[in-house]
Amino acid sequence: MFVLWPVDLRHPDEAELDAMHDALMRGCSDLASTHSTIGLDVQPRWHSPVVRFDPSLAKLVRSSAQRMGVSAHDMVSGAGHDAFHLARQIPTVMIFVPCRDGISHNPREYASPEDVAAGANVLLSVVLERATSRG
């Protein structure tokens, strides 16, 4: 029987991401060598280098959310959003809103209108703050 198990490793530090990859590969090798009935074929398919978002924009998102009484915390995202590519060229940040049962990028994804509005209002606040602080 053949089973495909994709593994998606994410970390904000490239060295740690490399260490995670190495540990996974060692673990798979150890497993295969100690269990002769298990055949493993581990093939890296894609590597996405770490991209850091703009710290000043992230700070604005956090402070805007706090002013509005919206909970916020920093998240690591390795997803290939447009922001991932933009961040290499211009100051960029992402704002996520909660999805029911934590399901996103899936047809079952659902974010309440209230959470979407809160995210949009945080975004608006950040844009206005950034626009007025730059004259």
Rank of each mutant, 00 (worst) to 15 (best):
106 N>Y: 01
87 A>I: 11
109 E>Q: 11
115 D>P: 00
83 A>R: 04
89 Q>M: 13
129 E>H: 07
125 S>C: 11
117 A>L: 13
87 A>Q: 11
116 V>T: 05
82 D>Q: 12
91 P>Y: 13
121 N>S: 06
126 V>S: 03
126 V>T: 03
98 P>H: 07
126 V>W: 01
84 F>Y: 15
86 L>A: 13
93 V>A: 15
97 V>E: 04
112 S>F: 12
127 V>R: 03
119 G>R: 04
96 F>K: 11
98 P>R: 12
125 S>D: 15
101 D>W: 09
123 L>R: 03
106 N>C: 05
92 T>S: 14
124 L>P: 00
111 A>T: 10
114 E>Y: 11
102 G>F: 07
93 V>C: 15
99 C>M: 09
91 P>W: 14
123 L>T: 02
88 R>Y: 05
104 S>T: 09
127 V>N: 03
104 S>N: 10
95 I>V: 14
102 G>Y: 07
90 I>F: 11
102 G>W: 08
89 Q>I: 11
88 R>V: 01
121 N>L: 13
83 A>S: 15
129 E>W: 01
104 S>Q: 02
128 L>T: 09
109 E>I: 13
122 V>D: 06
90 I>T: 14
97 V>P: 03
96 F>Y: 10
107 P>G: 04
128 L>M: 13
130 R>T: 12
88 R>K: 13
118 A>V: 05
100 R>A: 15
94 M>K: 02
106 N>E: 02
99 C>L: 08
83 A>C: 12
114 E>V: 09
126 V>Y: 04
124 L>C: 08
107 P>S: 07
118 A>G: 03
118 A>T: 00
114 E>G: 10
109 E>T: 13
125 S>M: 03
111 A>Y: 01
114 E>T: 12
124 L>E: 04
103 I>T: 06
94 M>Y: 00
86 L>Y: 14
100 R>K: 14
100 R>Y: 06
109 E>Y: 14
123 L>S: 02
110 Y>D: 07
106 N>H: 14
87 A>L: 11
121 N>K: 13
99 C>G: 08
99 C>K: 04
86 L>W: 10
90 I>A: 13
100 R>F: 02
111 A>V: 06
130 R>D: 13
115 D>E: 14
98 P>F: 09
129 E>P: 02
124 L>M: 08
118 A>E: 00
107 P>N: 07
84 F>D: 03
120 A>W: 00
83 A>G: 15
128 L>V: 15
91 P>T: 12
112 S>M: 12
121 N>D: 11
101 D>Y: 08
108 R>C: 09
116 V>H: 02
127 V>Q: 06
97 V>G: 01
91 P>Q: 12
119 G>W: 05
88 R>G: 15
128 L>P: 00
130 R>L: 09
121 N>F: 09
82 D>G: 10
83 A>Q: 05
94 M>A: 06
118 A>F: 01
122 V>C: 06
110 Y>K: 01
123 L>A: 08
122 V>W: 01
119 G>T: 05
94 M>T: 06
109 E>W: 08
90 I>Q: 10
116 V>G: 00
111 A>P: 00
125 S>Q: 09
122 V>E: 06
98 P>Q: 10
107 P>I: 07
102 G>D: 09
